[in-house]
Write a protein that binds this DNA or RNA. Structure first.
Lengths: 166, 166
DNA sequence: CTTAACTTTCAGGAAATATTGAAACCTACA
DNA sequence: TGTAGGTTTCAATATTTCCTGAAAGTTAAG
């Protein structure tokens, strides 16, 4: 496969995957583009490359910066800003875990905590307390495990994963 | 909190969370409803409870069955079908992991494999090979780890998680 | 202070997803 | 075998989510 085709395929695929990852298509595409680029790119270069509007580019770049997947970079004697992707995959994976945990797991923990004290003696209330209790157990475990993963350094991260697959 | 309020809150919240989990709102609500119900429910009861159409109920029930989160149940002397949720949370979590892995991780692995052999000697092609290589390393590790999690029995599952949070 | 290069915001339009409801389809039983 | 009770399908529609582009906001340099 030649470089141009590979680049397109990577950007397109990353975009499609992004959707199923709860990330917008464009945000994922910008991320892919920057990952592939050895140099920092300006907003205009991103717009040009992906054929998207200025507003779209700006919003998604900000989101990526918020996720810590992209950094702003200032170049000597240049007024405008340039953007680079975080290239250390261990850091990339960490950032993604942090964000998804925040959006997916933590809201659940809050809700389950609220639901702990449901009243009632009948079978339905009983069933609900049981379901909530089980879910809390799992979610708290997952929460702790992910926290540990994120706090640990990359070596630990790797060795834990390795030990899991034995 | 009384039972009715708790039930509504659980169903609503599960629905909202479902969205950020890449599951449709209704599918998640049906799942929540069945999780709370001590008895199997008919399609009509589901429609009634959640105020949704027959088509919607049917499609999402089938999807839940496909995910192995819900089973059909036949009652003595009843023509119509009833639906029960899988209540064992270890199994529920496993099913969800399997489905998300299938939708999120596996497509990525396929694409990365395709992109392994990009040609070119310049810096850009170099950068791309590097990115793809790193991503493959991580994805395959994650894939194996999740496979192990899913295949293992619940005790192993728990003890691994526990060992990770120490 | 003024200007011009650049960035951010946001209302309205476009695209993608989910839902409805009615018709077609099954199937157990009289 | 006809039919009533039940299920599934799918085109039309509603809803949610995303993107555009122009206007407003910033800020560095003259």
């Amino acid at each position: 496969m030649n470089y141009e085709d590979g680049k397109d395929k990577f950007i397109q695929s990353w975009g499609t995957l992004g959707s199923s990852w709860g990330i917008s298509r464009t945000m994922a595409q910008i991320h892919a583009l920057l990952l592939l680029s050895p140099e920092a790119l300006s907003a205009d270069e991103v717009m040009e490359n992906l054929q998207i509007s200025r507003g779209n580019a700006n919003m998604n770049l900000r989101a990526l910066i918020d996720w810590q997947l992209v950094y702003k970079e200032h170049k000597q004697g240049e007024r405008r800003e340039f953007f680079v992707a975080e290239k250390d995959m261990a850091k990339v994976v960490k950032s993604i875990i942090i964000q998804r945990k925040k959006r997916e797991l933590e809201p659940m923990l809050r809700i389950l905590d609220d639901l702990t004290g449901v009243e009632g003696q009948d079978q339905e209330a009983e069933e609900m307390r049981k379901v909530v209790k089980d879910l809390k157990l799992f979610s708290h475990k997952a929460d702790s495990a992910l926290d540990a993963l994120v706090k640990a350094d990359s070596n630990w991260f790797f060795s834990t994963f390795l030990s899991m697959i034995r």
